[in-house]
Simulated scan of single mutants.
Amino acid sequence: MDPILLREVLAQWASGVVVVATVTDAGRRHGMTASSFSAVALDPPLISVCLTTTSTTHRLIERSEIFTVSILSHEHEPIGRRFAGGKPAAVDHFGPERWDAAKTGAPVLADAAGWLDCRVAARHEAGDHTIVLGEVLAAGVPRRTAPLIYHARAFRELRDAARGTVP
């Protein structure tokens, strides 16, 4: 399979944008932007995220066994960009926004569209990524708002065009 063609085809799939974050025993917070997030099951409550095996986030979640998922709203594009790849791991990506500690201690964005606090339930190696299943320990919907979408390698907003309102 031609990897360039595959990337082009997969870029046509619109998805929501999340920040996957964790914290180490030493209190070091780290996170990354992801669009490979999915609900898996309600009973038991499971979600999945796909992490590049060479990423700092992957390594720290492997060590801590905990992570959070903060679902970004349409106004969180700067946060999505800040947590995107290509920046040194030593840089604090958490910025000026309020980040609360979830039940596990991992950070969640206080004004996220929604958040999930998870413990690693399983890992599945999948090529250059690991599919991480998280058992949801706590969750919240701080506010109802339109999501941030990633499509064709760009951030987009999803709006109800017929009514001009948030769905």
Results as ranks from 00 to 15, higher is better:
G16C: 04
V19C: 03
V20C: 11
A21I: 05
T22D: 01
T22S: 06
T22C: 04
T22L: 03
R29M: 01
H30P: 00
G31A: 03
T33L: 04
S36T: 14
S38F: 09
A39W: 13
V40H: 09
P44W: 13
P45T: 11
P45A: 14
L46V: 02
I47M: 07
V49M: 04
C50Q: 13
C50A: 14
C50N: 14
C50W: 12
T53Y: 01
S55I: 00
T57S: 02
T57H: 03
H58D: 04
H58I: 03
I61R: 07
E62G: 14
E62K: 12
R63M: 12
I66Q: 13
I66S: 12
I66P: 00
V69N: 08
I71H: 13
I71M: 15
L72V: 10
S73I: 00
E75Y: 01
H76K: 01
H76Y: 04
E77H: 01
F83V: 10
A84S: 11
G85P: 03
P88Y: 13
A89Q: 10
H93W: 06
F94S: 00
E97V: 01
W99D: 01
A102S: 03
T104P: 02
T104K: 02
V108R: 01
A110I: 10
A112P: 06
W115H: 09
W115F: 08
L116C: 01
D117E: 04
R119W: 03
V120Y: 08
A121Y: 13
A121Q: 13
A122N: 07
H124V: 15
G127M: 07
D128K: 01
T130D: 07
I131V: 15
L133E: 09
E135K: 12
E135P: 03
V136W: 07
V141D: 03
P142N: 10
R144W: 08
A146E: 07
L148V: 07
A154D: 14
F155E: 14
F155N: 13
R156N: 15
R156L: 13
L158M: 14
L158D: 11
R159P: 00
A161W: 08
